[in-house]
Design a protein around this nucleic acid. Structure first.
Length: 963
DNA sequence: CTGGTCACG
DNA sequence: GACGTACGTGACCAGG
């Protein structure tokens, strides 16, 4: 058994022999369901494997249950083999109107057997017998022996068997039969059958005979459906009694039908009767489970590109959850599609005339039906604003393939009451029809920055899921590689250019810019269609290109486990927003304005003239030319620098004006950026401030926040802190702020393996004091401050000049400090050297969770560029790992709070190492430990850190008070 | 549209 | 040997 996993044999861990429990898997029925519920996937050879993937994860799940008390001791898969069975002899039209299986399902049938063999499980199929009959016969045989049986299926015919025990005549205590629906993870027992059909399992056959079954073409009695059948059987006892009583019933259509179709009912009864005495092709005992050998399974998983299952297999027992989101159907797309290595198909060039403008409900329905069939659709919403919390929907575009795209205008022409409104599908009706598509688990929705569309559509009552995002795919693959490295690197226009060689229409081309800019809803439909449908088309193509690279480049882990599940979480936080006290801000603004005015007057008087203090140019001229002060430094623009350090130096030399200017600057900054701008940012609809987070804003994987930026609200000075008081909770609620304490230093201690630092964190010591003790032998105010500076210097990629500047010494002395640090903590130096080697070699750095950041200048000939890239490369794994950890915490947070019965808590903000919540005052005590646990354990189970993650929690009516 | 400055982690 | 004198962001203002 050296080759086998520890999957349990038929003995419980305490050594007692368990009562045998046979699982019979209805394989054929399963793949049909899997096919319709999962997105279309292909393996590396280009064979469709979506249903096979679903089937494989189902077997995997069953294997995980081996140790459970009611898990399998014996297991077999039963398949339909023959197209003919004895039922066709009874009724020639049996299953006659069943359509042929979909084209891309056919090649998957043989793979089901392959998958079953890969798990080393027996697979049973017989000519002239349907899977149902084999299952019934095996179930019967097993219960006779006193075994319990679970039928893995949700087929209603099989529900006739539920609960049935062996004949007491056999002299054995019979076993029981239940069913398991693995997709819904639901057990079906007698109560569930009664709930569904209104009769116990032994009468189900009679009900099924009356109602018939359109799928199998069992005729039943015309006009009788499940409800009538249930009523009749419950009233008369069984089918024959119903038929016998028919002539006595009061005159009705039903009575006539019963009389006319009596024979059809009897025939149907025989068709739905399960054959329980089939010869058993393989004896029951051979179904015994004896561990699942790894090797054939691994071969199978790798052949078909099921990489995450493969990894879990490699990690040991498949019965242990290894990470977030284990095997969700939505992630199957990632799984198999990413394993695809086939060359991209030759696509036709983008053809703007190929797109359809959808203006009728019939055409809309046709597109929706095709999207369901395709299991994946690129979507794009057109609106009136970049602010997704205020945007009004103008239309939606869909794409199903290259040049196979449409635009559905919904509100064009509505802004101009004099213009003639073009014909459009009524908005409410169109949204009602799109809703099932956009919310269907079985259809992947692809977007470029799909978080935006999520919010716009959520405000229309549609919860879009599951989603994939080409912008985030691009970021996870190529962070740091992008052209100029500016924000647009992962924008659609540049992605289209790089990956498709296609120049897209820009929004400016369509709507103009500046004062002449018009709303998208004012654009004529033909023009709007070309632009909007092109976006969806390009998004669809980009998805193909980027998805394909994911597994090859080892980026699946960070995308699937961290960034992708974060999309709906961030969308929710943005929608939540945070309440801001406008009066508080207005009052501060007024106070600041007065002080600014008086400072301005003083400065002008000192200068002897009136000038713009906010102009560095004018200020520089006044200070250094007119007043002739020394210490002026000129930058490359030839201008005097007037930044804080310069002014502080002047102030120290006794220039009173410098202090006044500094004060003026501080207050102006606070007033313009915060007290004034924040009032403007309050959403009139919600009365709250809704920032917008970018998941691709920072090369390291951090989030960034804009419109407004809520990640740089003042806290360091007392005046600034007053602004935080304006962020408040609703009445009866409080804000709760939870911070990771020193997370980057902790990560550095772990990643560079520095025992004394790890020890200090484990013991809850003051980390800077410990550093001082290690370096200087004693802890004084001075040495601690120096240690703190150098600790941060390490995180930022150290240079002797930089450190010298901070310590106020020269470079030589700074170098000595660095040397001392490396001597005491050799792990740090090794980490830096090793990290740089790797980055020079590969071009990118990696976080503990596999996030890559590329450094184009790491081998640059320009020493400044190179040194800059090196510092960034040392910092990125640490800053990035910290970002990964808090993102993982965010993904898990709401489910954890919900499970703890804290559904009223809302997550509002993220500030890199801090999460801000709003919750009822009474929930604080219960929520705090949940939040702390989720944050502290966020690295697990992917990464086991050798330092604890410390969390600090504060609460208060305002954000300021919560710190 | 760019550079300088300064708010945050 | 000297340097743009630390990493990552975003907003505002002045000036061209």
């Amino acid at each position: 058994m050296s080759d086998a996993t520890e999957l349990a044999p038929a003995a419980a861990s305490d050594g007692a022999v368990r009562k045998p429990h046979l699982y019979l898997v209805d394989g054929s029925a399963y793949i049909f369901r899997a096919y319709h519920r999962l997105p279309p996937l292909t393996n590396p050879q280009g064979t469709p494997v979506g249903a096979v993937y679903g089937y494989t994860t189902m077997l995997w799940k069953l294997a995980q249950d081996l140790d459970d008390a009611d898990g399998p001791t014996h297991l077999a898969v039963i398949l339909d083999k023959a197209s003919q069975s004895f039922r066709h002899d009874l009724y020639a039209d049996y299953k006659a109107n069943r359509p042929p299986p979909p084209e891309d399902l056919v090649p998957q049938f043989p793979l089901i057997r392959e998958a079953t063999r890969a798990f080393s499980l027996p697979c049973i199929e017989e000519d002239m017998l349907e899977a149902d009959d084999l299952i019934a016969s095996y179930a019967r045989a097993a219960t006779r022996r006193g075994w319990d049986v679970t039928i893995v299926s949700s087929d209603k015919d099989l529900m006739q068997l539920v609960g049935r025990c062996a004949d007491p005549d056999d002299g054995v205590e019979g076993g029981c039969i239940d069913m398991l629906d693995t997709m819904k993870n639901a057990r079906i027992e007698i109560a569930e059958v009664v709930e569904k059909f209104g009769v116990p399992p032994e009468k189900l056959g009679d009900v099924l005979a009356l109602m018939g079954d359109s799928v199998d073409n069992v005729p039943g009695v015309r006009g009788i459906g499940p409800k009538t059948a249930e009523k009749l059987i419950n009233e008369y006892g069984d089918l024959e009694s119903v038929l016998a009583a028919a002539p006595e019933m009061k005159k009705s259509k039903m009575r006539e039908n019963l009389i006319e179709h009596t024979e059809m009912a009897r025939l149907s009864r025989r068709l739905v009767q399960l054959k329980e005495d089939c010869p058993l092709p393989m004896p029951l005992d051979e179904f015994a489970l004896d561990g699942i050998p790894k090797e054939p399974l691994a071969n199978f998983l790798s052949t078909h590109g099921f990489t995450s299952l493969l990894k879990r297999l490699g990690a040991g027992s498949p019965s242990r959850p290894t990470d977030l989101n284990p095997a969700k159907p939505a992630n199957a797309a990632a799984e198999a599609a990413s394993g695809t290595r086939q060359p991209l198909p030759e696509w036709p060039a983008v053809d703007l005339d190929a797109y359809e403008c959808v203006t009728t409900l019939d055409r809309l329905d046709a597109w929706i039906a095709r999207a369901f069939a395709a299991h994946a659709v690129a979507i794009d919403t057109e609106t009136s604003s970049l602010d997704s919390m205020q945007a009004e929907l103008a239309g939606i575009s869909l794409a199903l393939g290259p040049n196979d795209a449409c635009y559905i205008p919904l509100a064009h022409g509505s802004d101009d009451m004099f213009a003639e409104k073009p014909q459009q599908v009524p908005k409410a009706e169109a949204l009602a029809r799109l809703k099932p598509l956009l919310e269907s688990d079985a259809v992947l929705k692809i977007g470029q920055n799909v978080k935006y569309d999520l919010t716009v559509l959520q405000r229309c009552g549609i919860e879009v899921a599951p989603v994939d995002d080409t912008m985030i795919l691009s970021f996870d693959l190529d962070a740091g590689r992008g052209g100029g490295g500016i924000g647009q690197a992962h924008g659609m226009d540049s992605l289209s250019q790089t990956h498709l060689g296609h120049t897209t229409l820009t929004f400016k081309d369509i709507c103009g810019t500046g004062k002449k800019q018009i709303l998208f809803s004012a654009v004529p439909l033909d023009k709007a269609t070309r632009y909007a449908a092109e976006d969806a088309d390009v998004t669809w193509r980009l998805h193909r290109v980027l998805r394909q690279r994911l597994a090859d480049e080892g980026v699946t882990r960070i995308y699937e486990n961290v960034d992708r599940p974060l999309i709906p979480v961030i969308a929710m936080m943005e929608r939540n927003g945070i309440k801001v006290d406008r009066e508080h801000l207005a009052r501060l603004s007024g106070e600041f304005a007065e002080q600014i005015a008086s400072l301005e007057a003083e400065v002008h008087e000192m200068a002897g003239e009136s000038f713009a203090i906010g102009s560095p140019k004018q200020l520089g001229d006044i200070l250094f030319d007119k007043m002739g002060l020394k210490g002026g430094r000129k930058g490359k623009s030839g201008q005097f620098s007037t930044d804080q350090t310069v002014l502080e130096k002047l102030a120290g030399e006794g220039v009173p004006m410098a202090n006044k200017v500094l004060e003026w600057r501080g207050l102006s900054k606070l007033r313009s950026t915060y007290t004034e701008a924040l009032q403007q940012a309050i959403n009139p609809g919600t009365g709250r401030v809704h920032t917008s987070y970018s998941l691709v804003g920072a090369q390291t994987g951090r989030l960034s926040s804009t419109d407004p930026n809520l990640q740089n609200i003042p806290i360091r000075t007392e005046t600034g802190r007053q602004i935080r008081e304006a962020f408040v909770a609703e009445p009866g609620n409080v804000l709760l702020a939870a911070d990771y304490s020193q997370i980057e230093l902790r990560l550095a201690a772990h990643m560079a393996d520095v025992p004394p630092l790890k020890e200090a964190f484990a013991d809850g010591e003051d980390i800077h004091a410990r550093t001082a003790r290690e370096m200087y032998g004693e802890v004084t105010r001075d040495t601690r401050a120096q240690a703190k500076t150098i600790n941060f210097a390490i995180l930022y990629g150290i240079s002797r000049w930089g450190l010298a500047g901070r310590l106020g010494t020269d470079a030589e002395e700074a170098q000595a400090v660095i040397d001392r640090y490396f001597e005491r903590f050799p792990g740090i130096q090794k980490y830096i050297v090793h990290t740089l080697e790797r980055v020079r070699e590969t071009g990118y750095s990696e976080t503990l969770f596999g996030r890559k950041t590329h450094f184009r200048n790491i081998n640059s000939k320009n020493p400044n560029e190179r040194a800059g890239a090196e510092r960034a490369a040392i910092n990125a794994p640490i800053q990035g790992t910290s970002a990964d950890i808090i993102k993982r915490a965010m993904v898990r947070m709401m489910p954890a709070l919900h499970d703890a019965g804290l559904g009223h808590a809302r997550m509002l903000l993220q500030v890199h190492d801090e999460l801000v919540f709003e919750l009822p005052e009474g929930d604080v005590a219960a929520a705090s430990p949940v939040i702390e646990r989720v944050m502290a354990d966020a690295a697990l189970p992917s990464v086991e850190l050798s330092v604890p993650l410390g969390i600090e929690i504060g609460t208060g009516h305002s954000w300021g008070a919560a710190h």
